[in-house]
Design a binder for these strands. Structure first.
Lengths: 219, 219, 219, 219
DNA sequence: CATGAATGAGAATTCATTCAT
DNA sequence: CATGAATGAATTCTCATTCAT
């Protein structure tokens, strides 16, 4: 998990005056990040509150000032550290004039960039697979807020292409989007399993994925 | 987990004479299945040996007659309950004469059948995602023994199609197989998350997946 | 404990016919010796019945055919494997004509021989020191049957010497015997502790002990 | 074990404010003494951490705040409750001018006083005999730190007497010291066995022991 | 606010003992 | 007689949570 490194690490010991207030305001965030890191490394059940505390540079008791209990802490980690890949409005604002095949490519690049650069989506997916059964609403809301919107943008791109006559007329079913985007999820799972010695070069992979999509939707 | 129901449930209490030896032979299996069920429901760490025992119709101590400890039990569950989807030799024996596009379809049907009908592959995938980091060799060997061979058959089908001139010359790279089969894994993950209220009708999904593949490899 | 090696080791597997009956008769003895060895190596509480059984070449259940339970087994080990150093009658029969200083020397030699050659007295002393508080009658009867008689012989020797005018008139108090024989116990304890790298050469030690005694009782 | 009674008994329940810090400082000591008492009564293996806790007026968990585990606790009991009989320097400072036979007597009185008054040396000897095989370094270091220095002082006294011409020229070999002091160890063992109904009157015993020594070393 | 000592409910594991074969 | 599978009480050790300071 070397790539997962966040602010919390910097915590620990600074006694400068005035810093206190600023620190206090950041506490919950620091704790969330520390908790995230621990959950990633050990899983929910095996993570000890004390270790989260140590990582956040505070003591056990402090955790309980900000979070009801371990379950709440876990749910807050998932809820507050999940980051949407896209802001749909902004996406269209920035790229409206582009041709549709470029939009598909842009979309893909953004998805992979997001998945590769930051560990949150990936690891939160792990949390949900591992312990989601104990927190059913969590999984549901995560899907609604983060997965679905992403699929939706892709569908909108396909629809645009159809309207413009560059994509096949039957390209944009929600099922098709789902299938066409699968390789991105597959790569994520592979990283979670961390077992493939021969993980593909990312760039090649995205290219291949893009080709696969285009062969399916190009007129 | 209603669908996961196995022999172990039938255990509990029968004192008929002669039963002893027969029971002893079955015990490990019964325990493995009970453990599987519990691990599925609660995850590795949250599963208590005593619950596994109860489910298997024995007591704590008995578990330890057959398995060194909880870790071993877990590993044995993964190792011994994993079932290969295909026997490659048999696959070719049975279907050698078929045209290649039919082979692709057969392959897909078998994969989805396996994934849908029996919970083992799916749930063992969950185990590996959840706790695989604590058992690295386990993940690796599972990949080698169960995932890789399946990918390999698919590649062989693609190669056959290329040799016979019905598939495109660049169809069969290992990366491409991986990408083309992604939708099957995606569906599995979705089931693991158990959050999609609108899970697609399996048959439609397989059809769509098949179409996606064919559009990519057909000449 | 390399020096402790007894018949029990030879147990295990012999299926020759006829041997059965002989073996059966020896079972209790074999078990006692196996138990002794285990108690020596691990102490009472840490010794497992199953290990005793394995060492005796039988199975757990068999132990319970011959001994009520672990406590009984322990007590029987102490009771039945304790060996008296002397038979007083025989001692006098054999050595009656000897001069008293020679008797003292003979007595000492026998004591040290007994303590050195066979591990029973020593290790049973360990048992009593370790766990005697849980078996009070055991300690008492061991003292009465094995320690006291030995002290008594020594007193009788001293008395004989006094009667014959070769030992001082105040030589033979029971306290004095006790004090004069202390070095033998001390050496035993040292062996039990097994920590002295510089354990004295036995022969020198006995000589020194003899000298010490003689300086105290010689006229 | 009526004579073994220590501070820990006074523990249990006091909630007065400010007590916290003071208590925390005492905890390890209290636990050590409670553990000592339990080990004395039941032996290492049979002692339950929970009983130690109860005796110390705390709960199980607290023990583990101060000691890694049961083995560490045991070793710390032996290490930290062992008390040297003498401070050699101080002994010489206080008694340098005394004649050597008086030094011997002083030495003996101190040894017996120490052994009689406080149970630590005696019971720690029991621990080492019972369980020392599981903690070999412990026995070794105990011998080096507590037994050997005591023997050494005695040898120095003998040497002084030889130099001054009041003791025999061959009095001070290390073997001889060992033999001459044996009766003290013997008495200790007897107390450990707690079986002699006719334990000698201590004062008589020390007198007899002193006489025995003097008969051996006086010119 | 923050601390960290203390708690005590659990969970894994062991092993004396039983009893069907 | 002998076996060894099964039991379940007992024990060590952990860790979420509380609360006095």
């Amino acid at each position: 998990m070397a790539e997962i490194k966040n602010a919390s690490s910097a915590a620990a010991a600074d006694n400068a005056p005035g810093v206190r207030a600023r620190r206090k305001a950041q506490r919950p965030q620091e704790i969330l990040h520390a908790a995230f890191d621990e959950f990633v490394e050990r899983g929910y059940t095996a993570t000890r509150i004390e270790d989260v505390a140590k990582r956040a540079g505070v003591t056990k008791g402090t955790i309980y000032l900000y979070f009801q209990n371990k379950e709440e802490l876990f749910q807050d980690v998932v809820r507050k550290l999940s980051q949407p890949i896209f802001n749909e409005e902004q996406f269209w604002l920035e790229h409206q004039s582009r041709p549709c095949d470029q939009l598909v490519r842009l979309f893909l690049d953004t998805v992979y960039e997001h998945m590769t650069v930051n560990p949150y989506s990936r690891e939160i997916l792990r949390f949900l697979i591992s312990d989601g059964r104990s927190f059913p609403e969590l999984t549901a809301s995560h899907y609604d807020e983060f997965v679905k919107p992403t699929l939706t943008i892709f569908e909108h791109i396909l629809e645009k292409g159809m309207r413009e006559g560059v994509f096949r007329a039957d390209a944009a079913t929600s099922q098709m989007s789902y299938i066409l985007l699968s390789p991105a999820l597959t790569l994520t799972i592979d990283k979670l399993l961390d077992c493939q010695t021969d993980l593909p070069e990312l760039n090649d992979y995205v290219n291949a994925h893009y080709e696969m999509i285009m062969r399916n939707i190009r007129k």
